[in-house]
Amino acid sequence: MAFEKFSEIREKYCITHVEVTEGKMMSSPAIHYKKKVFAFLSKNHTMVFKLGKDFPIETLDIALSEFSPFKTKKPLGGWYEARFEDHGQWETLTELALNRIQEDI
């Protein structure tokens, strides 16, 4: 289910945005903008978004957690994950992540 929802979002963004492409992030399926990852599906079926360290996640109506793929290292700064239970918000978060990376590049 998670992969299907992710794939649906990725396909839509690849069709509607010229510089958005499919890719990988840590062996997981990802969405790239100008070859830079801004969202991907993690191995535990959450979707992960690069929103930036200063993004006010408390303003969103969804519980996000910092993405921490390593047991002994701190979380990846500016990356947040949303559970599959919140997949109804994944597309909104994808749009926020795309807007952020467009500003940064």
Rank of each mutant, 00 (worst) to 15 (best):
W79P: 01
P56W: 10
S68L: 05
L76V: 13
S42H: 08
S7E: 13
F6Q: 03
S28H: 10
V20T: 09
T94G: 07
S7P: 01
G77L: 05
K53E: 15
K50S: 07
M26F: 15
I9A: 07
H32N: 15
W90Y: 08
T92L: 02
S68R: 14
I57R: 05
E91P: 03
D104F: 03
G23P: 08
I31D: 04
I62D: 00
F3N: 10
F3D: 11
I15Q: 11
V18G: 00
F49S: 06
P29V: 06
T21Y: 04
L51Q: 09
V18H: 11
T21A: 08
P75T: 12
P75A: 12
V18T: 13
V37I: 12
I105R: 03
I62W: 00
K74D: 05
L64A: 04
E85A: 15
T46Q: 15
P75R: 12
F38K: 08
L76P: 00
A39P: 07
S28I: 00
V18R: 13
S68C: 14
M25K: 10
E95K: 15
G52N: 11
E8N: 12
M1P: 05
T92W: 00
T59L: 11
E22L: 06
T21M: 02
P56F: 09
D61S: 11
E4M: 06
S42F: 04
T21Q: 12
D61K: 13
L96C: 07
S7A: 14
Q89K: 15
S42G: 14
W79F: 14
